[in-house]
């Protein structure tokens, strides 16, 4: 029975193992780094026994920088995704509620933000703001809540059209109680799935902003590592370890989060599908 569990959920377990490793990198970086990330050795070394990924143009060990950059990449993305999901859920529920004025206003707000191109606006605003982690987090959250709101709007309007809601209203249960005790628990599956995907897209967005040089440059992130590697001649000096290892890290974390998110999505849909089939 244990083998069957492992085989059925193989991808989920792999994804969770990868995420666990990176979370350990983020929370306990000193366990994994051999050197201090700002200690200068001979620059532009290729990967060797002393430096697993070589050194960068200032002589810093690339592996240590990568491990230290994990927490500066993961934690801001996590906070931004949490913020975006909370705002998205609130706006989505308001956009699907029964009050005509409120739902029209919030629905229109979602449609307006859908039409705004995210990355150009983010680049322009980030250029004007002082470069700090807080501004990056707020910026990503400001423009990422829309997808969540759209999905929650769809799910809430589905949930509100169920017969039991009408019955509860007839029985005299207050609107607030219906939303918090009945509708919201039904949405938890979808919200969790969206949260995981939102973390994934926040990491990708933050890497893109870091690549363009718009995040806090004193705190190394994976995107800014790739930026420096590219701008300081990594291609020409064949320093592929420096160029590609942050990219591989981003890809692994994003892939693991996507797999976990898909698993959560399938679970959420199975729950809602059962409800639909009963009707």
């Amino acid at each position: 029975m244990k083998v069957r569990f492992l085989r059925q959920n193989a991808s989920l377990l792999c994804a969770s193992a990868i995420l666990l490793v990176f979370v350990l990198f983020a929370v306990f970086p000193s366990w994994f780094c051999m050197y201090d990330s700002k200690q200068a050795f001979e620059p532009w070394q290729q990967p060797s026994a002393q430096h697993i990924l070589g050194t960068n143009d200032l002589g810093y060990d690339v592996w240590s920088e990568l491990v230290v950059a994990t927490k500066y990449t993961l934690f801001p993305s996590l906070i931004a995704a949490l913020l975006a999901t909370v705002v998205g859920v609130v706006v989505g529920i308001c956009a699907a509620c029964n009050n005509k004025v409120v739902s029209a206003v919030f629905s229109w707000l979602i449609d307006v933000f859908l039409a705004i191109p995210k990355l150009p606006l983010m680049v322009v605003i980030a250029a004007f703001l002082p470069k700090s982690t807080l501004s990056t987090v707020m910026l990503i959250a400001l423009l990422s809540w829309v997808t969540t709101a759209r999905l929650i709007r769809y799910n809430t309007s589905d949930a509100l059209s169920a017969p039991y809601v009408t019955q509860l209203t007839i029985l005299g249960v207050g609107k607030w109680r219906i939303y918090t005790k009945h509708i919201l628990p039904n949405l938890f599956g979808a919200i969790l799935a969206r949260l995981i995907v939102a973390i994934c897209s926040a990491i990708l967005t933050q890497s893109t902003l870091g690549f363009l040089g718009l995040t806090d440059l004193t705190q190394p992130t994976w995107g800014s590592m790739i930026n420096f590697a590219y701008k300081r001649g990594g291609f020409l000096r064949e320093a592929y370890a420096w160029l590609l290892s942050p990219a591989l890290a981003i890809a692994l974390v994003a892939l693991a989060l996507s797999l976990v998110g898909r698993f959560a999505e399938v679970r959420a849909r199975r729950v809602t599908d059962c409800v639909a089939m009963d009707n």
Partner: peptide
């Protein structure tokens, strides 16, 4: 599709370039 979606666009660009 999930695997390629996880790659940010500049990584894809650099892979194709390299």
């Amino acid at each position: 599709a999930v695997a390629v979606n996880a790659l940010p666009s500049f990584v894809i660009a650099m892979l194709l370039l390299a």
